[in-house]
């Protein structure tokens, strides 16, 4: 009787180990992929230095109308701060975005007032969101729900399906194409219900110190399009980043006073 019970418990133990093996195998890639996400973040975040660069944001409506915004961006990833100063068009010159931690303000030089804005809002009515200028934080904000390999043009990529682990992020679901050198080549952003909202392609990067910064990013808005000549043409925003610098910037750059002062000088 005792032997029989012993045999059953032994069998059960083996069964449990056998059944849980696939789970263990499945769990391993997840942690690998989380490591990959951390590498992705590491390569494009400038935690050691300040970053400044000139951003040209060109929005092309489906059908052809083009509007261009030129802005200077100052970014300090270690304290989660940025300041964007609009230089063109003339009508918006002096406008500024200031991010300090979770707070994001928009400065209007005409009314000389700051208003709270949200990371999910469109940047200057383009397909870019204010959150696109934040430091990369995929490994903090998302978990990998599935992964596969895929070839994207000339790049061999790992495609990671991510799901948000907090409600801070604008897009609850994201799909990333990470190529072999751990740089993201394509991003698809989905709504909570799974609707594809944007596709961002990053064909080229530039090396800045020991980190990487995109040279161009092309964002397609999947909700705004026109059918032209039998083809679906989406609203397209191209962001070009020039003259990156890692020069240390004074703390006063990341303040409301700075935006006010810059506009005082202009007057």
């Amino acid at each position: 009787m005792y032997n029989r019970e012993k045999k059953i418990s032994l069998l059960l133990t083996f069964a449990i180990i056998f059944l849980s093996f696939p789970l263990l195998v499945f769990a391993t890639p997840n942690s690998e992929h989380m490591n990959l996400l951390r590498k992705v973040d590491y390569l494009v975040n400038f935690t050691e230095h300040d970053l400044s660069a000139e951003y040209t944001i060109q929005r092309r409506d489906p059908g052809g109308a083009v509007s261009t915004t030129v802005a200077t961006m100052f970014r300090r990833d270690r304290t989660d701060q940025f300041l964007i100063l609009i230089l063109e068009p003339l009508s918006d010159r002096g406008k500024g975005y200031l991010k300090q931690g979770d707070n994001l303000w928009l400065y209007d030089p005409v009314s000389r007032s700051f208003t709270f804005t949200s990371a999910r809002e469109r940047f200057q009515n383009s397909s870019a969101r204010n959150s696109d200028f934040n430091r990369s934080s995929y490994s903090e904000d998302y978990t990998v729900v599935s992964a596969r390999s895929e070839r994207l043009g000339t790049f061999n990529c790992t495609v990671l399906d991510l799901q948000a682990v907090n409600t801070r992020v604008s897009f609850p679901r994201v799909r990333l194409w990470v190529c072999e050198n751990n740089l993201v080549r394509q991003i698809q952003d989905f709504s909570l219900s799974g609707q594809l909202m944007r596709t961002t392609a990053i064909p080229t990067y530039q090396r800045v110190g020991d980190k990487w910064l995109p040279v161009t990013m092309v964002i397609l808005d999947h909700l705004v399009f026109q059918n032209i000549g039998g083809r679906r043409e989406y609203e397209r925003t191209t962001i070009t980043i020039r003259d990156p610098s890692l020069q240390t910037l004074p703390n006063s750059v990341y303040t409301k006073e700075y935006l006010e002062r810059v506009n005082e000088r202009r007057r």
């Binding site: 949200s118 999910r120 948000a164 409600t167 609850p172 709504s191 909570l192 219900s193 909202m197």
Partner: peptide, 10 residues
């Protein structure tokens, strides 16, 4: 947007 501010569609 959801009440938390995330994008949502239906």
């Amino acid at each position: 947007p959801t009440k938390e501010g995330q994008h949502n569609t239906a």
